[in-house]
Amino acid sequence: MTAQQIIFIVISAATIVSALIVVTNRNLFHAALALMASFLGVAGLYVLLDAGFFAAAQLLIYIGAISILVIFAIMLTRRLMSASEPSFNSQWVMGLVASVLVFGLFLYVIIQAWGGAVAQTFPVLQAPMEAPGIADSIRALGAALVDPNGYVLPFEVASVLLLGALIGAIVVAQPEKKS
């Protein structure tokens, strides 16, 4: 086992354990803190995948913005979730069965399609190949985002979506005026 593999296993174990805390902890505030830990683990996986820009974006957008939004929402609605109230609905067993089945299906497909004999045939699946352009990938991404033959239309649509979400969030969260 190489050092890289050990780092990967530690980071992903931390990510998955904190994700489990997110969905099982009764205390929503602790769940939100575990969510931040989980996001941090995912950022670590991005670093292992040579996507440093996305690790930074993960820190800024998920840990910096979305987690804070979630914590604000929890605090604004807090007193409702007292300790006595159940935090899972009546179908949680069915939910557990469904998600375990989905995970089993994914595992089966992953092993069938990418593991075992397939991975032996294609060395690129065993370890990421040397890619000299990897350091310039962010420059390529930036160029592709404004390239008419690339992603300029989805890019513009994304900016309109963000504007719409901004205005929509303000309008929806506004207290109703008494007439």
């Binding site: 989980s38 899972f88 609905n89 375990v100």
Partner: peptide, 12 residues
């Protein structure tokens, strides 16, 4: 991670 999230969506 996806399966854990799915469980959270279904059960919370």
């Amino acid at each position: 991670l996806f399966a854990i999230g799915l469980y959270g969506v279904l059960a919370r």
